[in-house]
């Protein structure tokens, strides 16, 4: 193990020198080490055929292969998590028929925890509907973040394209859910709440004013909708890239000395927090884009408090339902 760690830092030192042209130091990963083998060359050919390379980059081969590494780690995570949770859910039985497997119990603890946690934001009625999306995001991102910490691993979440893809999924999901619930309520979101012309009572000037407010708020809300996935992805990307660069710099500082070890724990904390933030913000966006059910005139504020309006008291947790049986 020590020898492996030493080899890792030596590679990091070499990588830090070699990657100087690219400007961003990073620790080596297993697929990166396989680049010059036949397997790696085949992968690079496939990546180039799939146009994974950024056309602006001077070395399309390296760029395409770097993207391929992310995809491979992503596939590993998807297969591993799917295998674990599908297998866990298959063995669930009611008590008299047989024992519940350890895996099923673990999965159940995870699900119940998420249900409580996101129930505080989404509300008890809605959390069941959105839990598959939000909970999966948390587990998935946490797993991918942890890939960046294990030996010869790489976190795909330190890549902007990857995060933007996830954020776009969230964007589509949030808006689709809102439109499906009530298209008119969704559209009522954009002008927000505005005073009726009669209430204002200023004649044509009041009409103009109301029209101006409607246009202004529509523009602001469209911008908000666009900015949300961008900021969601940039936050995860920036944090993970910052962590990776920190690890890369300290790993390559002194050859054969794994100076980056203390920062691995920091990275674990950061990865968990960022996974939490990503899924938490998805839940928050789901409440923010909840369709307006009332008339716009009777709303207060900018219409963002709706998710909380019909939320039950979350302080006392509900008893666990039939899922536990």
């Amino acid at each position: 193990m020590l020898a492996m760690l030493l080899a890792e830092t030596a590679n990091a030192a070499a990588g830090a020198e070699g990657a100087h042209a690219e400007g961003i130091p990073e620790l080596p990963n297993i697929f990166g080490l396989l680049h010059h083998t036949a397997f790696g060359q085949a992968l690079e050919g496939l990546a180039l055929k799939l146009h994974l390379a950024d056309p602006m980059v001077t070395d399309p081969g390296a760029s395409a292969y770097s993207a391929m590494e992310n995809i491979l780690f992503m596939v590993i995570a998807i297969i591993g998590l799917s295998w674990f949770f599908i297998a866990a859910s298959k063995r669930v039985r009611v008590k008299p028929e047989g024992r519940i497997s350890r895996r099923a119990t673990f999965a159940e603890i995870v699900v119940v925890f998420f249900e409580d946690f996101f129930g505080a934001i989404l509300g008890r009625e809605q959390v069941r509907q959105h839990l598959p999306m939000v909970g999966t995001l948390f587990i998935y991102i946490l797993t991918l973040n942890c890939f960046g910490l294990i030996f010869l691993g790489k976190a795909p979440t330190a890549n902007l394209s990857f995060n933007l893809g996830m954020a776009l999924c969230v964007f589509v999901y949030v808006h689709f859910m809102s439109i499906r619930k009530s298209p008119a309520g969704y559209l009522a979101h954009y002008p927000g709440s505005y005073p009726s012309i009669k209430e204002l009572g200023m004649g044509p000037i009041g009409g103009l004013l109301v029209g101006f407010i409607i246009i202004l708020f529509t523009i602001i809300h469209v911008m908000e909708a666009v900015i949300q996935p961008v900021s969601l992805s940039l936050r995860l990307f920036g944090n993970l890239l910052g962590k990776d660069v920190l690890l890369g710099v300290f790993g390559g500082l002194v050859p054969y000395v794994p100076l980056h070890t203390p920062f691995l724990f920091l990275g674990l904390l950061l990865g968990a927090i960022q996974a939490l933030i990503f899924s938490l913000l998805t839940a928050v966006y789901l409440t923010l884009w909840e369709p307006h059910v009332h008339h716009a005139e009777h709303d207060e504020g900018d219409g963002h408090g709706h998710g909380h309006a019909h939320k039950p008291n979350d302080l006392e947790p509900e008893p666990v339902h039939s899922r536990a049986a």
Partner: peptide
């Protein structure tokens, strides 16, 4: 705690933009 984390994430994003 949840509300604080969300707020902190929004604030922290600004630094992250500079970092990016």
């Amino acid at each position: 705690q949840t509300a604080m984390l969300i707020g902190a994430a929004f604030i922290e994003a600004l630094t992250i933009y500079a970092l990016v």
